[in-house]
Amino acid sequence: MTLKTWTEILAGGLITDAGNSEEYETGSWRSHRPIIDMDRCTHCMICWIYCPDGSILVSDAKVTGIDLTHCKGCGICAHECPRKAISMVEEAVAKEGAQ
């Protein structure tokens, strides 16, 4: 990515491109990955409410997974889930498991 010069950027650090934080891959910060046990999940949406990064993927009122591009692995979802359906797995281990 070519960085802009000081004459090419809007003063004061303003961002006029609303929602462009999506372009920032906070997923790279993650050391632990949340894994949902779909057999235990009741789709109560508590994790969706609590996730600070909007990384709980939902479709048709059902939790379908985690947006790994943005999930930074904070573990809040796992902590809040009343069904203990989410476990935090070390990223390296989770990657191996996924392969």
Binding site: L3, K4, T5, W6, I9, A11, G12, G13
Partner: peptide
């Protein structure tokens, strides 16, 4: 680090 300096120059 990528842009802070540029804002100060402004």
């Amino acid at each position: 680090t990528d842009y802070f300096f540029e804002y100060k120059r402004q």
